[in-house]
Amino acid sequence: MGEDQSEICYAVDDNGQYVLVPSLGWAPKNIANAQAWQVIEDKVADALERVKAGTASPLAYHMARHQMSVGLLAKYVGVFRWRVWRHLKPSGFKALTPDQIQRYADVFDITPEELTRIPSSADDKEQHDKNG
């Protein structure tokens, strides 16, 4: 896992016996993981751009940040996919009631104000550092 929380894996010792040893990480695995995060980061950056350009609502940014698809977010909020899809557009987002905004905010564990605010790049940076 992280630097201090190592995974363990199976390895053969000098006598041919299997032992459990802390994993030191393995390059191919790290490459595959880095690739997966790159895809997520690209999606977040893309969403952020669209939000700033006014073609998507801030919801799109938070959805991407939490690696969610429309279907998954719809499940969490408990509404149909097409409604989430509509809320991803600025016009649909504006029509949300405070109650609905609260439900979205609860899923992402943020306040309604944070959800409705157009995210700055700083938020984005912070997230990247966290994911490091």
Binding site: I8, Y10, A11, Y18, W26, P28, A32, N33
Partner: peptide
């Protein structure tokens, strides 16, 4: 990449559980 992650990540103990099975 996804295939490699399924094989090595997700706590397989290496090589898609083959080492654990050995």
């Amino acid at each position: 990449g996804q295939l490699i992650r399924m094989q090595e990540e997700l706590g397989t103990g290496g090589a898609g559980f083959r080492f654990m099975y050995s």
